[in-house]
Amino acid sequence: MLEMSGVAKRYRTATVETRALEGVNLSVLEGEFVAIVGPSGSGKTTFLNVAGLLESFDEGTYELDGDDVSKLNDSKRSRLRNQKIGFIFQNFNLIPDLSVFDNIDVPLRYRRFPARERKDRIQNALDRVGLLGRIHHLPGQLSGGQQQRVAIARALVGEPRLLLADEPTGNLDSKTAEGVFDLLLELHSSGSTILMVTHEDSLASHTTRSIHIRDGFFESE
């Protein structure tokens, strides 16, 4: 499903070079739920950005679902991102002036699905996260937990091969966080492959596997 070997990412500014990722080797199988745990600044987000083709990397090789993605141009990377990856962000990242429907519609539009199919998929996805009744609301009219559920619906509406979540419960109170995490567990049990960044060991203990990252290095499995 996902194969990384020796992946490194460095940020250069005029004065300093930050080694955000060094020699990352990782292999994720279909249907796994992998937690990536580490302190702040250890490179978790950087790793997810590289894994999610949001950013290029400097060294190593990366195969996603059988495709070597190291040397793809922007439009090919964008297409892969669109078809194979769903993102869930810590701060939800919903577009505030688009309705719930239009927010979930974004990845489907770039997929060029016909209108009928988009509508069906959006309704199904919302149904799965239990928010079908809020389809015409604006994000600002929803609670934090509901917003994150909408974001999850948006991530899974295109049936991607891989879900990437960056501290999906980080902005939520513990009770709401639990509900959202349960939803992820549910998705996992129905077959989704999930990579989740978190700094809460309690969440990591429920996943199939957890990886610790420190200063850009993956420590142990």
């Binding site: 922007d74 439009s75 964008s78 297409r79 669109n82 919903l94 974004v106 997929r111």
Partner: peptide
């Protein structure tokens, strides 16, 4: 968001 969801440059 659009970029992450698949919009190319």
């Amino acid at each position: 968001v659009h970029r992450a969801m698949g919009a190319s440059r």
